[in-house]
Design a binder for these strands. Structure first.
Lengths: 169, 169
DNA sequence: CGAGGCATGTAAGTTGTTACATGATTAG
DNA sequence: CTAATCATGTAACAACTTACATGCCTCG
């Protein structure tokens, strides 16, 4: 149940509405834990009923702002400290590579080129975020750590594909 | 529905029983698409009823060997050619990094060290597989491509964590 | 006044996990 | 003879996706 802890963690940062959380997921957390509005809103309802979060404001167009409760903060920290990270990775794009030999060599090469272009695009986006001057709070340093991790992973994909398109397959 | 195509792809390689497919998933495909027996067996049943695979032998202890049919082969190839890879990545371990600032600095550092040790272990395993002399079929070259991709991704994680444990957080 | 973005929600269906369940064969 | 591994399956539950559904507000 990473989604609920991702939500709690995002609210530990600052109070946010469902919609703001959704945008935050799209921008910041998308490469670590993508989530859609149809998952976020019901989960917020559950977190509210369990008193891990509380509604602190209501805004225009029915927006509701939530803040983390003490119990909620304790729960994220418990999750971080006591539960083992799920290190399994599902990677459709990598899976396909195992089966490239089922395509004609030209098609396989085109496939690799498309993947390369995609990841180069993502890399450029991440580098833009990186270019902004960093703050010096612990929160900001943790974010930079994660961002650096994301960049390195995407970079290794892009470099690998650079190498791969030149292989005979 | 990557699982069914992963199964079809594995059977395109050679006929295999459910149990052999399970072991193949554990050893080879685990870093791209982990799957458990409780998912594999029912899916094989569905593939059989759709005639994408056929049972070609029955062995000891009720084991059943399946082979890809022509329709099945056409379906993997269609999947590779016509469907867009799902490039979303769920990464619990990376998600947690965003929230490290909620722990005490010492705890955060320990967390990073544990992650580093884990990925270094995986890297060592992959390098062992890499060390075996490669064959020269297209199938084998596609496998080497994927293996190299896996190694680079795990390597980038390990190097990142090497860097991260030395950061102030 | 219309288009686009803001803002929330529900429902049906699919996929994946954990636990339950059974039995055969082999190596020590 | 007994523990480990081989070998297959089902069931209940949890998580995730896609589609349906509604209405507000602001900018041009």
């Amino acid at each position: 149940m990473s989604l609920r802890h991702a939500l709690l963690g995002a609210l530990a940062d600052q109070p946010r509405s469902g919609y703001e959380l959704l945008k935050h997921f799209e921008q910041s957390l998308a490469y670590a834990w993508p989530a859609s509005h149809s998952q976020i809103y019901p989960e917020l309802g559950r977190l509210l009923s369990e008193q891990l979060i509380e509604q602190t404001a209501a805004g225009a167009r029915g927006s509701k702002t939530y803040a983390l409760t003490d119990t909620g903060l304790a729960e994220v920290r418990r999750w971080l400290r006591e539960t083992e990270p799920d290190r399994r990775v599902r990677n459709d794009a990598l899976l396909r590579m195992f089966f490239l030999w089922l395509l004609e060599p030209d098609e396989a090469r085109e496939h690799l080129e498309r993947e390369r272009a995609y990841w180069q695009g993502i890399l450029a986006k991440l580098r833009e975020i990186e270019a902004k001057p960093p703050g010096q709070t612990r929160k900001e340093r943790a974010f930079r750590l994660s961002l650096e991790g994301g960049i390195r992973m995407v970079e290794s994909r892009a470099h690998w594909l650079d190498w791969a398109v030149d292989q005979r397959i």
